[in-house]
Every structure is written in C-alpha cells, then in structure tokens.
C-alpha cells in the first residue's frame, strides 16, 4: 500500500512538474529525439538532447538575446576549435541560457535579439557529428546547472514504455539475474538494472537514458535515480538528485545502472522496479526472491 501511495505521489509530482514547466517551444518542427539528457557519453553524461527533424529551420525555444556565437572551423594559433560546430547561445529571463549546437552555418553576427518565431539557423552536421540534427542544451546560470530540456518542452507523442531488460543482484562471488522468483543466499548485493528508452529518429533507432528509475524492496522505497538536472561536484558532472553519482560510477556498462546495495535477510523479499520515460510511460517489474540462510 505504501508503495502505491508513493507512486501516486511521485506520478502526481512528475506530471504537475512537467505541465508547469511547459514554458519553452521545440526549436524545430516535427522533433524526434536521438539522445537524451543523462545518457552516458564517455566518462560523463550527455547534458542536452539531440533533435532530428524533417524540417530545416531552427528557432529559439523562447525569445532571447544572442550572447555567444561560434563557427565550426578555427585555424589561428589563438583560436579555439568548436566540437559543437556552429554554435549559438541565447540568454533568456531567469538566468536561463539555451545552447544550439551543430547548426548548418554560423549564426548571423549582427542580430542580437531573436523572437521565438525568428529563424536562428538550420539543422546541420557541423562539429563532431555525422547526422543532421540540432543539439539543445539548457543551463540555469543562477544555480550553475544543466537542466533537462525535456522537462520544459511540450511532450511529443510517445506511447511505448521504456525497455526494462534485466535486473541483477551481484555479490563478490556470484551474480543472480532476477526472474519471476529467484533463490539467493542471504547477504549484501549490488543492484544493477539494464534499462533504456527507445526512439526512432533520423531513420535510426536510438537508445536513450530513461527519465527515472525507482526501486522498492518489500514495499519501501530503496533507491531512485532521476535526470532532472546535472551539476558539477569536484569538477565532475553528477545528477543533482541523489544518489548524485558520476557517470563512471552509475553506468557499469551500456544502459546498465548501478543503484546501490541491497541487504537480504533469510525469508521472502519482493523487489519492484519502476522505470519512467520523459513522456510519462512506465515499465514495472516485480521480482520475488527467496532468501536462503547461509
């Protein structure tokens, strides 16, 4: 019962948070998401979203002032090259900055302000990418955080739930992939969850980080993860929400999330895993565990 109430509260918070933050517009028509905030990128996290579109024009997510523009190519000794290719940064109210990367051509130098209906540029493949897209990043400069753009953009039609592939309990000596009912010796285990969200964009199926993962053990909230925003701790990016792990700690493999330790005492136990995507779709699995005494 407890977990049901918690879930209801969480869902209510989730949907109300999303609906009240619908303050920005998509920078392109017909947006398709190719990578999401929080996905692993090398030793770090992706801090924005890659957006594909059948349309070319890129517009601001909100009216704003151009505060930085970069060109794709730099060859002078004193120049800094731009892996984000042709780049534009707009300053909005409330300390919000929106960053548009990989644009098709450099943003005009002589236009300091852009209305939401004005074209900022076109989608492109400048910088380190091959596909044609625009990379959108949002920074809350008042609190020095990267904010998940999907929390403040209108929801796009996505009715498929995230893929919840495998949940595993691992100890120093053994590993137990959980099924309907699994017998494990009593002890301390590392809980890893293999899950991802999928989208079809730019003619390819993309795997992306889900929005949140929640774990309940015997009806009590145990571990959780959500990608609302990222901040810097000791010069490394971590999610602002607990457990605030660096990407190298959170991801033990492709889409394999490490969500802390579980202590299992002899008897029966139930592990429930809830995975949400950014559209509110949810995958739920319940695993029964028979914990054997040593």
């Amino acid at each position: 019962m407890k977990n049901v109430i918690s879930l209801l509260a969480f869902s209510l918070f989730f949907y109300s948070a999303i609906s009240t933050l619908y303050s920005f517009e998509w920078p392109v028509d017909d947006p398709q998401i190719g990578s999401t905030f929080g996905s692993q990128a090398g030793e770090s996290y992706i801090k924005g979203i890659e957006i594909f579109s059948s349309a070319e024009a890129v517009s601001p997510i909100e009216a704003g002032e151009l505060v930085l523009r970069s060109s794709e190519y730099a060859k002078g000794i004193h120049d800094l090259p731009s892996p984000m290719g042709n780049l534009a940064v707009l300053q909005h109210e409330r300390g919000i900055q929106s960053i548009y990367g990989h644009l098709g051509s450099p943003v005009k130098e002589d236009v300091p302000f852009y209305n939401i209906t004005e074209q900022l540029g076109t989608i492109g493949s400048s910088g380190t990418i091959k596909a044609e897209l625009v990379y959108l990043q949002i920074i809350d400069s008042e609190v020095n955080r990267y904010v998940n753009p999907l929390l403040s953009l209108p929801s796009i039609g996505d009715n498929s739930e995230p893929q919840l592939k495998e949940v595993t309990l691992s100890s120093a000596v053994d590993s137990f992939p959980l099924e309907g009912t699994t017998s494990v010796p009593q002890g301390s285990y590392r809980l890893s969850i293999n899950t991802f969200d999928e989208s079809s964009a730019g003619g390819t199926v993309h795997r992306m980080a889900p929005y949140s993962i929640k774990v309940y053990i015997n009806g009590e909230a145990k571990d959780s993860l959500s990608f609302e925003s990222l901040t810097v701790r000791d010069w490394n990016l971590v999610p602002t929400a607990p457990p605030a792990l660096e990407a190298a700690e959170l991801y033990s493999g492709p889409w394999e999330f490490q969500l802390g330790k579980v202590n299992l005492q002899p008897g029966e136990a139930a592990i429930e895993v809830f995975v949400n995507d950014f559209s509110g779709n949810e995958a739920v699995r319940t695993y029964r565990i028979e914990v054997l005494s040593n």
Partner: peptide
C-alpha cells in the same frame, strides 16, 4: 578521450564534444 585538441604552452588540451 574524444573531442577537439588544441596546443597551448607545449601541452595538449582536448575539448569535450559538448565543450563543457
């Protein structure tokens, strides 16, 4: 690492793909 490198003062600095 991946990204774009620059040489400064005899050392190399690689800017990450998202410039952060």
């Amino acid at each position: 690492v991946e990204g774009y490198p620059v040489e400064r003062g005899g050392d190399y600095f690689v800017l990450s793909n998202d410039l952060t």
